[in-house]
Design a protein around this nucleic acid. Structure first.
Length: 463
RNA sequence: GGCGCGUUCGUCUAGCGGCCUAGGACGGCAGGUUCUCAUCCUGCAAAUCGCGGGUUCAAAUCCCGCACGCGUCACCA
């Protein structure tokens, strides 16, 4: 049975798009193998907790369509799925390691650690815990047991090296001497990431850990932990991080990074997923547009790219446009209504759909293009004052149009156009601006049909 | 700085020793369709496959070195 997971930390206000990309792979790998996909909240850093962050993250994951089989929301056989609610578990396992001699108590103060590292740095040495407490362990244990001295639990890194086979990177080897005696249990009783992740992944029977490459250097610590406990190792796959155009790690300075920012701009969840799927992976048939089910069917961890991709919002927009054009008009109307809100008349919105479908890339493009449908223009991009005479002719001709449809309107206007000996482009541009206020608009005749005869004539007369 | 990972058109990528005069997509440019914009269609430009050595009859593909980029070295994840 394949089980995968994502383990977001509520230290940001929402899910990072990079996390969605990783979540997508985890989801696909689990589903492809008829396994389970789990969401676990790693809220062990009390100082960096963002209020409301967890709730928002879970909501976004829900909106984006990556449904978890087990999570803090839906529960599951390994509940709780929130690390802050599993504190006794970590404590128990940390104590187990101490008892086994695989970890030790440390009572060093932050001050001493800082000083120690500064000295090491100045001597051009690798900053690493000097094991002072390990050397005095008998005394330290006594202090801890008898006087309940504030302490942490540190992992005792053994000598040797760790080699593991990463599904994306291949064989990776790291010498243990490059590893620090990592703190496992903090003095506030919370576990660090390293302890929490290993204990929970084991307890929750996670088989495949697909995560960002920033974790690659600490994977040996995790493997050492698994071995210290005597647990079976999971399979690792480290995917590359999304980048800014300058190749630095995708950051909010240079790009929107919160997933909901894209959704709020009117990017469809399925388009975002589709785009993200193409970051570091490609469809075996070279297809660009495909849905989640198809992705799940053809995805394979082994085909994940090692190279870090640059996130390109322009291509995302293009892709979203493709989704809009492929969508059924009724469904698109519902999406638009959800986006712009119920204050707009639904039937009117429905009429505009065929007109704007090929013209918008995101839902946020909708209103700027169609607002003239809902209210008269107040600003005109072209000065029409000199054209009063022309408009009078147009109005009197249009008044004779009894069946107010786009083609009849077009025919009538064409007659006036030819009579007035105005160039077509110029003629229609004048009308366009009079009706919509803008030089760029949806098809004119259809727009006038939607507006209705009275409203259209009113606008032409007002020039 | 130590350790680790990476390097094919501007960007996402295909490529797994001969099928590569390196293919596709986005973007760009030019043209067609059109009352605007967009859609759609046609075409063009765009990578000495990071650099330098090897191995081989043959290398983007294998090996070695270098450069550059990124990640990581916390009682943060």
């Amino acid at each position: 049975m394949i089980r995968t997971r994502i383990a977001p930390s509520p230290t940001g206000k929402d899910v990072h798009v990079g996390s969605i990309a990783t979540a997508l792979m985890n989801y696909a790998w689990a589903k492809k193998n008829k396994g389970q996909f789990i969401i676990r909240i790693e809220d062990t850093d009390q100082s960096r907790l963002v209020p409301g962050g967890e709730k928002k993250m879970l909501e976004t994951l829900e909106r984006i369509g990556l449904k978890a089989d087990e999570s803090p929301l839906v529960g599951g056989p390994h509940a709780p799925y929130r690390q802050s609610e599993r504190l006794e578990i970590y404590k128990k396992y940390a104590e187990e390691l101490v008892a086994k001699g695989k970890a030790y108590y440390c009572t060093c103060t932050p001050d001493r650690l800082t000083k120690m590292r500064e000295e090491q740095q100045s001597k051009k040495q690798i900053p690493k815990y000097d094991r002072q407490c390990f050397k005095n362990q008998v005394e330290i244990v006594k202090q801890v047991k008898e006087n309940n001295v504030r302490h942490v639990v540190r992992l005792l890194i053994p000598e040797g090296k760790v080699t593991f086979n990463d599904l994306v990177r291949g064989e990776v080897t790291i010498e243990n001497q490059n590893l620090d005696d990592q703190v496992l249990l903090k003095s506030d009783g919370f576990p660090t990431y390293h302890l929490g992740v290993v204990v929970d992944d084991h307890l929750m029977e996670i088989t495949h850990i697909i995560r960002g490459e920033e974790w690659l250097p600490s994977t040996p610590k995790h493997i050492i932990l698994y071995k210290a406990f005597g647990w079976e190792l999971p399979t690792y796959a480290h995917n590359s991080l999304l980048r800014n155009p300058d190749k630095s790690k995708l950051s909010k300075r240079k790009n929107p990074v919160w997933t909901s920012e894209y959704l709020e701009k009117g990017i469809f969840p399925e388009a975002l997923l589709n785009y993200l799927a193409l970051m570091g992976w490609s469809h075996p048939d070279g297809k660009e547009i495909f849905d989640l089910d198809e992705y799940v069917a053809v995805f394979d961890v082994k085909n994940i790219q090692k190279t870090a991709p640059v996130f390109d919002p322009v291509k995302l927009d293009w892709m979203n446009g493709e989704y809009i054009r492929q969508m059924d008009d009724k469904k698109l109307k519902i999406r638009i209504m959800d986006y712009i809100g119920a204050s707009y008349p639904e039937d009117l919105v429905m009429k505009t759909v065929p007109l704007i479908k090929e013209r918008i890339k995101r839902l946020s493009d909708y209103l700027p293009l169609t607002e003239f449908i809902f209210k008269s223009p107040t600003i005109y991009e072209v000065d029409l004052k000199e054209k009063k005479e022309l408009f009078e002719k147009i109005v009197s001709k249009l008044e004779t149009v009894s069946v107010w449809t786009a083609d009849k309107i077009g025919e009538a206007m064409m007659v006036v156009c030819e009579e007035s000996k105005t160039k077509r482009g110029e003629f229609f541009m004048n009308v366009r601006v009079a009706i919509t206020g803008k030089k760029i608009s949806p098809p004119l005749n259809d727009s006038m049909e939607i507006l209705g005869k009275d409203e259209s004539l009113k606008r032409l007369k007002s020039i």
